[in-house]
Amino acid sequence: MHLPPFERLVDAHAAELHRFLIGLVGPTEAEDCLQETYMSALRAYPRLRHGDNLRAWLYTIAQRKATDAVRRSSRRPARDLDGVEPVAPSGPDLADDGLWLSVRALPAKQRAAIVHRFVLDLAYAEIGSRMGISEEAARQNVSAGLRRLRQEVTP
């Protein structure tokens, strides 16, 4: 099977990947992450052996970019030491800012599972297949994430 023209991956998946990334890193960083996701994908694209499950492949890359972004922004205040102004973390981007900062602080798998489940409204089987884990593991990551959020977020 041949790989489809790359731009078709943009048309088919960009909007949903964007929402996924907003859940993971917040709206300010989401667009950058989305661009970086597609640039990495484009670089590797011709070397893919087949065109199966390109969507899952894109989500894997997006998740990696989100993890990098979260790691970068948590390291940011350290720059203060070099005399550079610290950059405020995403700021009041979302109406529900406190909650989403807590989501971003979750372990990567729980965070991704929560975003897949609630932001993208996916069933556990689908979440599992996109994350490359079992349906049961997807369910466990969602409930572990929810448990943790309930402890941190005051309703």
Binding site: A14, A15, H18, R19, I22, G23, P27, E31, L34, D93, L94, A95, D96, L99, W100, V103, I114, R117, F118, V119, D121, L146, L149, R150, V153, P155
Partner: peptide
């Protein structure tokens, strides 16, 4: 309540 809030992030359109 928590799940409802998680389902409705204010997401700017792409």
């Amino acid at each position: 309540e928590l799940e409802r809030r998680l389902s409705a992030p204010a997401s700017p359109a792409l």
